[in-house]
Design a protein around this nucleic acid. Structure first.
Lengths: 154, 154
DNA sequence: CTATGTGCAAAGCGTTTGCGACGGT
DNA sequence: ACCGTCGCAAACGCTTTGCACATAG
């Protein structure tokens, strides 16, 4: 997944993050920054546990609870997004722009993709009665190449 | 939500269900039939607990575990579908044809809708590299009218 | 009759919370 | 110095599992 183009740079994200925290009155703790940086740098939609695991090497005292709490907090402030999944473990991402997800039903890998053609088509009529629609996202599911190959082994 | 048209009749579904069970070597127990019938009759994507609650009146001895187990089994055989949600509680549906979901982020109500224009547009290029794509579904989220009105109270 | 499915109770897992200590601002 | 945040451990809610009994085929 290339940087640039759609994804903004890590520096930009961090800068925006710091600004947003200040504006929201959230303290800029080492832990929060670390959690955010790790998530912003990741492209694999890590879970709280995955993030905690990665963070321990650079910040050995950070606790899993803090990661949970931080993610929950950041999500409330719209700085981070929970990915729609039917898994028991929630998965997160720092990319907030409109994009969609392709999930391998076997290994649960999540791939981001953009789909401008979809973003443009109007919603079906009649949905306006529902109320206010905020977000539209596509979830594709299937089996990734790697898993298809593994299946051959079995 | 009208019966007919898109949704097939309850009888049809039940008939197909019995056939599928037989083919799969699944025993047709009262409980399984009841769980399936209740789910097929529902339009609100109930959770396991909701289903259990409704079933108790007609089948007072059925246990919550059985509902869980049945739903898991049926899902494995493709007779029932788990709805993509970020909630902690899984939600189910018996409708297996292509349709999409609109979720109220406040009250968690799920609305089905059809969107032929979407179903027709081709997937973005480059996704073919992923592997095999089985399912494409749209998840819209927003706030339903009822919740918007309630907000006025607060 | 035999293999599967059920009910019960207890464990499992991801996540949240209460509390005292710590550290930004 | 103060309030927000952290780490720890214990609680929580949804779901799964082990075991003995019941039941469909």
């Amino acid at each position: 997944m290339e940087t640039g183009k759609y994804r903004s740079s890590l520096q930009e994200k961090l800068a925006r993050f710091e600004q947003a925290c200040r504006k929201a009155g959230l303290k800029l703790t080492h832990q929060r920054l670390a959690v955010y940086r790790e998530l912003a740098a990741a492209t694999d939609h890590p879970s709280a546990e995955m993030l905690h695991c990665r963070l321990k090497s650079s910040l050995p005292t950070i606790s899993l609870d803090t990661v949970y709490r931080t993610l929950t907090t950041l999500e409330q402030y719209g700085l981070v997004r929970k990915v729609e999944t039917i898994e028991s473990q929630a998965r997160y991402e720092a990319e907030m722009h409109g994009h969609h997800h392709l999930i391998c039903s076997r290994c649960k890998k999540i791939i981001d993709f953009h789909w401008p053609d979809f973003d443009e088509i109007p919603l079906p009529e009649g949905l306006g009665d529902f109320g206010r629609i905020r977000n539209r996202s596509v979830v594709l599911s299937g089996i990734c190449r790697r898993c298809l190959e593994k299946k051959a082994d079995a």
